[in-house]
Structures are given as structure tokens and as C-alpha cells.
């Protein structure tokens, strides 16, 4: 790697100020599983790495009055082992398990994954279906926004160049919401997703589906929700036909591409099957409650 300076500021404001000062020449370092690889291959003109993993408000996983707070610098390995995540958001744990391999999960952070905003970001769908929102630190302090608004396009988030992702919050009402996540890659380990899918829903007293959520990854310019497919099942009694109809609708809501990993058509088949399976499993979990 070409020479650069390294700083590990102790506060978000300090980090934001450094980024604002150095502009394009500064990069944010969290786990480094993407950034260090980039710096090795496409050196660019980077003169400063700002390590955000020593900022206290970026760290930790905790339960607050509002719900579950996951620090953006929480590593996948940490999330997978954390009692709160395992209890309240098992599908975020499952999604974390599909990222890279043990060694990369012990480096990579959930915030880093969201900030890179690749369409195949494995942590996105399971967070989207739980209506997660995010805290962003900028020069004027912190602001909050829904995760859906955070994603803009391929490798593009709504973060301004000097802004930082502080944490991810899952609303209290959604902790323990019946949910399921599936990833399909060309290998079982260390593979990019051809398709990621997640679903979450409740069943009311009469057994009807309420607040259904469906999210997909790797089949659109960014991780997406599927509102039309959600509308298909909202308020209805779950049946195989209904869930299949929703899966069919989800296929119309994604825009997969042809690339060397798979054809768009193959990805659409995957969306159909995986959406159906995620919904089916979510209904099963909900009806066991």
C-alpha cells in the first residue's frame, strides 16, 4: 500500500472534522475488509485513514427504551455471539453468518457493510424488514433517517462525504418479530449473494397477516423493499397460494442484471422461490407463538 497517515479519533465530531478537512484524500476505516483491499489494488490518492472503531458511540450493542441499538462498528462476529441479537433479531444473526468467513466476520463491521452500499450487502434485507433506522453524524450533529432512505444507489448512500454512520436502531415494537432471511450464493462460504431475501410479519388474533415486510438484495441497484408484494398479503389469512402470489409480485418489483455470476432470469427464479420460503417460514414462526 502507498503511504498514508492513520488516526483513531475518540469522538464522532473529531472524526467528522478530520473528514471535512481532508476531503477526498481521507477515507473512513472500520473493519477494513473492503477498504484495505481497495487501497492495495487501486491506490488512488489517499493520504489519511480515519479509524472510527475507537469512538464509543459507534461501539456496542444494547437495549434502549426505543429498542435495540447496534453500533455501526459492531463486528459480525460480535453480533452473532451477542445475547440480545440472538434473542431479538435472530435473522440479523443469520444474515451476519452468511458474510465472508470467520476471519472476515471478526474484522468486518455492520456499519461498513451498509456504508459500502453494494446491492448485495448481506446485512441490509434483514434490517430493512425490521424497519431499522440509522443515526448519522455530521458537522451539525446527529440526524436520524430510515434505512430505506439511507440507500441511494450502487455504492451510494445519502451520507455526505464527511458524514458518518453512528448506529443502527431496531424499533422496540419489532424486536422478536417473526422473520426469515435467506442468501443464495454460488458457494456456501465466502460467496457474494446472487439473491438475498428477507421477510417479517405478525399474525393478528384472527390469524391474518399484519405489517408484512419483504426485502431483497442483489437484484436492484440497491437493497430494496417490495411494497406491492407486501400489499398482496397484508390483512389476509396466510395460505400457500397467497404467499406464492406475493412471491410472484416480488419478482415484478426487482430489476436483476445479467452478469458473469448469473443471468437476470435465473435471479428472478431465485427471487420467486426465496421470497416464498422466507414468507412461509415467517408465518410458521408467527403461528408457533
Amino acid at each position: 500500500m502507498r503511504p498514508f497517515d492513520y488516526v483513531a479519533p475518540a469522538s464522532a465530531q473529531e472524526a467528522v472534522a478530520l473528514l471535512a478537512e481532508h476531503g477526498d484524500h481521507a477515507k473512513v476505516l472500520a473493519g477494513g475488509t473492503d477498504l484495505i483491499v481497495d487501497l492495495k489494488h487501486h491506490a488512488g490518492n489517499v493520504s489519511l485513514l480515519v479509524d472510527v472503531t475507537e469512538i464509543p458511540e459507534f461501539l456496542g450493542i444494547e437495549e434502549t427504551d426505543e429498542g435495540l441499538r447496534i453500533g455501526s462498528a459492531a463486528k459480525y462476529g460480535e453480533i452473532m455471539e451477542h445475547a440480545l441479537c440472538r434473542e431479538y433479531t435472530p435473522e440479523i444473526v443469520a444474515a451476519s453468518h452468511t458474510v465472508g468467513a470467520v476471519q472476515t466476520r471478526n474484522l468486518g463491521t455492520i456499519g461498513g457493510n451498509l456504508v459500502t452500499c453494494v446491492p448485495s450487502a448481506d446485512s441490509a434485507p434483514s434490517l430493512l424488514v425490521l424497519d431499522a433506522d440509522v443515526t448519522v453524524a455530521g458537522t451539525d450533529g446527529n440526524r436520524r433517517m430510515p434505512l430505506t432512505d439511507f440507500f441511494v444507489g450502487p455504492r451510494k448512500t445519502s451520507l455526505a462525504p464527511h458524514e458518518l454512520l453512528v448506529d443502527i436502531r431496531i424499533p422496540k415494537a419489532n424486536l422478536g418479530k417473526p422473520s426469515h432471511f435467506l442468501k443464495f450464493g454460488l458457494r456456501k462460504g465466502q460467496a457474494l449473494a446472487l439473491v438475498n431475501a428477507a421477510a417479517a410479519l405478525w399474525l393478528d388474533d384472527k390469524g391474518a397477516i399484519t405489517e408484512p415486510r419483504i426485502a431483497l438484495g442483489a437484484v436492484a441497484p440497491k437493497p430494496v423493499r417490495c411494497p406491492k408484494a407486501e400489499a398482496v398479503i397484508a390483512g389476509k389469512q396466510p395460505s400457500d397460494e397467497l404467499l406464492k402470489e406475493a412471491a410472484e409480485m416480488a419478482v415484478t418489483e426487482c430489476k436483476p442484471i445479467d452478469d458473469f455470476r448469473a443471468s437476470a432470469n435465473y435471479r428472478r427464479q431465485l427471487v420467486r422461490t426465496m421470497t416464498y420460503r422466507c414468507l412461509k417460514r415467517s408465518v410458521e414462526i408467527a403461528s408457533q407463538r
Binding site: Y6, L29, G31, G32, I36, K40, Q103, T104, N106, L107
Partner: peptide, 23 residues
């Protein structure tokens, strides 16, 4: 040198990781 092959694996504070990806 990109964290795929695992030959650089070491244990840091009790967790295995790719030492080629860690500064």
C-alpha cells in the same frame, strides 16, 4: 493478500482474523 485464502490467519484478542486485512 485480500482476505480470501486464510493463510494469514492469526488470533487477536481471542478472535481469528485475516492479518493481511488488518493494519
Amino acid at each position: 493478500d485480500v482476505g480470501d485464502c486464510g493463510t494469514c490467519t492469526v488470533i487477536v484478542d481471542g478472535d481469528s482474523l485475516n492479518s493481511c486485512l488488518m493494519l
